[in-house]
Simulated assay, not measured.
Amino acid sequence: MTAWNPAVHLPELVDFFDAGVFIVDLEHRVVLWNKFMAQKTGRSAAEVIGKPLFELFPDLPQKWLEKKLDSVATLKNYSFTSWEQRPWLFQFSHNRPMTGGIDYMRQNCVFVPLKGPGSEEVEFVSVTIFDATDNAIYQTQLAEALKTLEESSITDGLTKIFNRRHLTERMNGEFSRAVRGKTGLALIMFDLDHFKKINDTYGHLGGDEVLKEVAKRVKDLLRTQDVFGRYGGEEFCILLPDTNLEGGVIVADRIRSAICAEPMQFGNQQIPVSASLGVTIYVHGMPGHETMVQLADEALYECKRNGRNCVSSKLPEASATATPIVIT
């Protein structure tokens, strides 16, 4: 019976693996190269064995891989790197549909220190590359689905801004932050003037286009930290962190101007639109964000009484009274 000869039998064995296997010495010269690696790189074992890995494949992440190989040899312990940490070692193609959103084969890599023949010292490091593309596609699709689900749960389907439920949650959070930090917080409530007439004249599709365009125009005026949502119907709400009453009124009037500056386009028709806006701010001692909503809503209806297309502000009775700003 022929004795086991690693030099002969090990390469034959690893050629049957459905994974990439190669071994390098401490100078990073290739000493083993299985069939999987040959097929994926287009270079046979005869072409690569005995040659420096990084000269053969200059596209490898040399600095990172050298450090990984050397640390495995020095610490005499194996190491694992997942595709989530580093998507690939070699830029191998894959046979999955491109609709999966994956460009190159995703790879999990295992690094194992190997002792030399008759030695207790590590003289080689083996690297095994597993194809993790299917798992990566599933994980990516799952993450995208969860993200879409999360967005749909907090977003108004028509205008693509925050819905009322999420808006209320953010109100509560920003109100608490203002209380704790004694920072400014302004709130704007606004609705579209004579919106029922718009729906009656142009139909609900026309009304929907108006709501979408209003949301777009307003969003373009706001900062990243501002919170903008649809409160219901044609009524909208904006939270302005770190903003005083004067700043809130200035923002509100910019919004009013942007809404009525140009008619909304609906097919070949143009729909003139204006809005009434109520502004308030957090005042020390307020019991909750509901008080801010009530004050801003009262200021909004003050606008209605003053002819619409204007901005009005209101504070608690102990602080101030409504201050309408009528724009003609």
Rank of each mutant, 00 (worst) to 15 (best):
E302S: 09
K76C: 07
E123Q: 15
R43P: 09
R177A: 12
L26P: 05
S313L: 03
F22H: 03
V127C: 04
K51F: 14
P61K: 03
V218Y: 09
V210Q: 08
T148M: 14
I161E: 04
V48R: 08
K115P: 08
V112Q: 08
P263E: 09
L89E: 03
G42P: 10
E150R: 13
F228Y: 04
F57I: 00
K76W: 12
A252C: 10
W64C: 03
F57K: 01
L167G: 07
L211C: 05
F236N: 01
Y78I: 00
E174C: 10
E262L: 13
G181A: 09
T168N: 13
H166T: 10
P287V: 04
E84W: 04
G206E: 13
K304A: 10
A143P: 02
G118S: 06
R165V: 13
A132N: 01
G184Q: 10
L32S: 07
L142A: 11
A132Y: 01
E47Q: 14
I154H: 05
I238Q: 01
A145T: 04
N95V: 10
W83F: 15
R96T: 11
E213V: 14
A186E: 10
E235I: 03
P97W: 07
M105K: 13
G203C: 05
V218E: 06
E169P: 09
L222R: 01
E317M: 04
S276L: 02
V31A: 05
L114K: 00
L167D: 05
L56F: 13
V72N: 00
E120N: 12
N95E: 15
K219I: 05
E27Q: 11
M1A: 14
V122E: 03
R308A: 02
E27R: 10
F54I: 05
W33Q: 05
I49L: 11
Q141D: 08
L32G: 02
G20K: 02
N163M: 11
